[in-house]
Design a protein around this nucleic acid. Structure first.
Lengths: 236, 236
DNA sequence: TGGTGTTCGTGTATAAAATACACTAAGTTT
DNA sequence: AAACTTAGTGTATTTTATACACGAACACCA
């Protein structure tokens, strides 16, 4: 393991989304300050300072991996937050004093986001993350630093992105029903749609192909299963 | 004049666009290193290190003002560039050694963009900008640092943004013809449109209102003049 | 002053996409 | 076998996109 020099002025934060039971979720960590006595009940987006010898994208991947165990995630940059007062809550200051070499440094943070199928990843918190948990976006509490603002920006980014490409590929299981897909769109866009029109529109893309298979074990008419065919994708 | 502490790790760069004679232009500076003997023929986007006590938005405004004289510009953040090797050309290294206290520092830069009517601003270069000039985007040469990449990203941002709001308001004179507006769209989107369809579509917005006035002094049928009515604007 | 050159301004037909709306079908449970 | 629950489908209407050609208005020049 090589030693890396830390850049005390620049961090990355990751807003990782997943979709479960019709609701959008985001990955948060409960931070803790090593062996110190800091009692800190704030949750946060996984994030940390960058190394001098890595790109921002690399930093985002490394930090996410170190704090949650998630690796090989395709992360996209969302926005950079640089208000000098973005670290001003007493709890945040106390926590930084406990864990950082330059706790008073002014830190600019670059926000990244990604979408994952949570069942494909085992969450393994390490470093200063006491644990990492999936939290429904609707239930996200008051977070550390300016992380609520960062989360909002990442959600805006998502809403925008779903117009450009079908995001379900990243968020749904390999086989899914059109009702699941519709719920995903409704969750991200915070809207609701007519079932017939949604199905017509989504099937027009030819990106979603029907399988010769049905849902099992549901107490009603089973829905047909579909899958994404990436090869048929072309920008909308 | 108060003294400000400089953050050696974070800079801002501004891609300021204007529109003239049917072509999109960008504001570039010819940098020079004070009294030093550095011969440097690279042009660059206006940009510099931030102060510790200002937000990124404030830094972008200050830097733009210091280097070009443009003030009170509404700047929007585009993207953040943080490749550790983004400063690797010999000319860039030489130039930084001549002007910076920590010329070897790894610098992350936050790109900003804006649109201006160039006739409303007098360009007054100062600081290390030898001069500031409008250059047609099609004619932009090889730039300092990774500024060509930054410019490309800003142009992408523009293309995207014109779908969300009618940008002509920022770029055209108060009174303009529909042909001018069409050329603006064509320049930004690098496409061309049917005149009748373009007019129908743009007038459907009710954001653009016809004046009881015509073009003067043209050697052909004079075009009617229009203006933007911001109050009628609603997101598309 | 009449002709030439140039850009302006307009309408219609067709195709594609968006929207609104309600009932039968296929399973499971009791 | 009846009740329950979600799946799956079609049509009519409006809106938007696209393709396409010619007379009108002005300046300029001979």
């Amino acid at each position: 393991m090589t030693l890396h020099q830390i850049n005390p002025n620049v961090s990355v934060d990751c807003a990782i989304f997943s979709f479960d039971q019709g609701a959008l979720e985001v990955l948060l960590i409960e931070r803790h300050a090593g062996n110190s006595e800091i009692k800190d009940d704030l949750m946060a987006l996984p994030g940390n300072l960058i190394y001098e010898d890595e790109t921002l994208d690399e930093a985002a991947n490394r930090v996410l991996s170190e704090l949650t165990g998630l690796t090989n995630i395709f992360l996209e940059q969302v926005y950079t937050f640089g208000n000098p007062n973005r670290i001003s809550k007493q709890k945040d200051l106390d926590w930084l004093r406990a864990i950082r070499a330059s706790p008073e440094a002014r830190v600019i943070t670059v926000a990244y986001t990604s979408l994952v199928k949570k069942e494909n990843f085992k969450i393994q918190p390490s470093s200063f993350a006491k644990k990492a948990v999936w939290v429904k976006v609707k239930d996200v509490p008051h977070l550390a630093f300016d992380h609520n603002e960062i989360l909002d920006k990442a959600l805006d980014y998502l809403k925008h992105k779903i117009y450009l490409e079908p995001l379900g590929y990243e968020l749904l299981p390999d086989k899914f029903t059109l009702a699941q897909l519709q719920k995903l769109y409704e969750a991200i866009l915070e809207d609701s749609f007519d079932k017939r029109n949604f199905r017509r529109k989504i099937l027009r893309t030819e990106f979603i192909v029907k399988l010769d298979e049905k849902q099992q074990g549901v107490a009603h008419k089973p829905a047909g299963l579909y899958r994404f065919d990436k090869s048929r994708f072309h920008k909308i």
